[in-house]
Design a protein around this nucleic acid. Structure first.
Lengths: 165, 165
DNA sequence: GCTGATAATCAGTATAACTGATTATATTGT
DNA sequence: ACAATATAATCAGTTATACTGATTATCAGC
């Protein structure tokens, strides 16, 4: 309650919104900032909701990835999620301790692990996902269905467009 | 070149796109993820572009804030930017060392600092902003002007909608 | 003036990203 | 087949950030 002066105030107060003209140059300095803050908000709430499962949003991301790409080596999951190789070690350690993910040796490349959801992981994932969706929906509550779809489409285009490779 | 398998592939490959139906529930589990990755991409590139000025995107954010709210106390800047009070100390230390920002005692509240851009800070900011805009524009290159405007509008609505107060 | 709140700071802890090295295994070139 | 090089995972150590709790100075209300 002490704090009704948010970044949105900054932006609003400063006539960066609405942007009537077709020169979004004025608002570009704030774009990165705005995306970062939106991300921060959502990630924080997802993290909170995942806490009761003993994991973070990042662990959830790994599980989500494995649900679709079973048997992927650790490094590949990291590349897809843009998580550092050494950070992946810790994440998978955590997930293994919770018995949500298994490390098996890849028979075709015995340096690598083939990561899979464990039995428990497969069982839990729908429930975990349901929670994540709940809070994400809540985070997006101020948006119309149509806006959510647009946002998704635009972000996807953005992420696709900026490949570092 | 080793890595053409990005998160976008995940999403595309999995028919999460295009989302023809009016049930974005299927894609909601990926929304937070997608925003986070978009943010990561932009923040990283902005950080890189700021490096030649000896600052990070966070320092830039503080300067941008001060350019609009001169004389704000440290804690207020932190609240607006959602940066921890103790982290602000370090950020302002850095900016002061670079002589971009000044801490003056607020005459009305001698506990607080009134933060201001220094002379040099005021001079530099347009140049710094120009660089930031350059790389942000590059990050958004895959989007049409119209999509950038939409994205901005939607994100602003989202951030406004999810006040933690 | 006393009490409780607040701005900034500092010390200490926890987490994450990153660097560089190591081990085991794979791949490539000859 | 063998040597050189590359790769997957790990570990140790460094750095950046967030957060907690305490301290100091100051403010505001009674």
């Amino acid at each position: 309650m002490s704090n009704d002066s948010h970044l949105s105030d900054l932006l609003l107060a400063l006539d960066y919104f609405p942007m009537d003209e077709d020169t979004p140059d004025d608002l570009l300095p704030f774009m990165g900032f705005l995306i970062a803050k939106a991300a921060q908000t959502i990630v924080e709430t997802v993290d909170e909701s995942m806490a009761s499962f003993g994991i973070s949003s990042r662990h959830y991301g790994v599980m989500l990835m494995l649900s679709r790409h079973d048997g992927l080596p650790q490094v590949a999951v990291g590349e897809k999620l843009r998580i550092d190789r050494t950070t992946m070690v810790k994440l998978v350690d955590d997930l293994e301790k919770q018995d949500l993910v298994e490390r098996r040796r890849d028979p075709h490349d015995r340096r690598a692990y083939a990561l899979s959801l464990s039995e428990k992981g497969r069982e839990m994932l729908p429930e975990i996902s349901r929670r994540a969706v709940e809070v994400e929906r809540a985070s997006l509550a101020s948006l119309k269905q149509d806006e959510i779809r647009q946002l998704f489409r635009i972000l996807l285009k953005l992420v696709k467009g900026t490949r570092t490779t």
